[in-house]
């Protein structure tokens, strides 16, 4: 539905030209849980023309504490399909394609053909490293974020950077397995991811290339570290 004034409050943060660039852009969001749900919601609201959502899970009761697309009424539904329905009611001008399954390296070249940028909203360290490898092979920019408890990390990896593999290539299972993920952490990290995503889509310089932001919502400290 074309609604007059839908993007009025995007001005003057975004120029008319920026808005047009967003409407001509396609973003793949890999993972549609805590982070991915909020990322999809915001990219649809701000006016990105096409979204491709990946997730192989259905909603469970334990998702209700933080996943914006989860409601009591859609428990058991595929996450990507629930997201597609919600986004249709938020902004029907946005084309939302969904993949009911996990991101697979061998299918990526076909699925990501029309994509301009990828948002990493995965929940395992190995799959993040694989996603970065695929993005670099396809010359696609990647905005990555991860969360655990009160904490999060995010950054931008452009082809050749290998930032994700540097940050997520070592160590055992993430501390989210014991600290969980409360409502506020995915919302914050998703918003930061979307800010970097929008900059890249409209042609501005991202702030977190060759660096990552360490977010601590317990002490309210946001610290930037260079990846040297």
């Amino acid at each position: 539905m074309k609604l007059e004034g839908r993007y009025d409050r995007n001005k003057k943060t975004l120029s008319d030209e920026d808005q047009l660039k967003l409407s001509n852009s396609c973003v793949a969001i890999v993972g549609c849980g805590g982070l991915g749900g909020y990322i999809a919601e915001q990219l649809a609201r701000i006016g990105v023309g096409k979204l491709v959502l990946y997730d192989g899970d259905r909603f469970e009761v334990s998702n209700l504490n933080r996943q914006i697309m989860a409601t009591e009424l859609n428990i058991g539904q595929w996450k990507v399909e629930a997201a597609q329905e919600r986004l249709r009611s938020v902004n029907s001008e946005v084309q939302v394609d969904v993949v009911r399954g996990w991101f697979e390296e061998k299918k990526a070249p076909d699925r990501l053909r029309d994509v301009d940028l990828v948002c990493d909203a995965l929940d395992s360290r190995d799959s993040r490293v694989m996603l970065e490898r695929v993005c670099h092979q396809m010359e696609l920019p990647l905005v990555y974020a991860s969360i655990a408890g009160w904490f999060g990390q995010l950054g931008v990896s452009l082809p050749g950077d290998l930032s994700v593999s540097r940050l997520y290539g070592h160590g055992e299972k993430g501390v989210e397995s014991t600290w969980g993920n409360p409502a506020f952490t995915p919302a914050v990290l998703a918003s930061l991811s979307v800010a970097e995503t929008v900059k890249l889509l409209v042609g501005r310089t991202p702030s977190l290339r060759h660096a990552w932001l360490q977010v601590d919502l317990l002490s309210m400290e946001f610290e930037r570290f260079e990846i040297q």
Binding site: G33, A121, R125, I147, K173, G174, E176
Partner: peptide
């Protein structure tokens, strides 16, 4: 020193 943060 940083622990692994991998959730989504």
């Amino acid at each position: 020193l940083f622990p692994p943060v991998g959730g989504g």
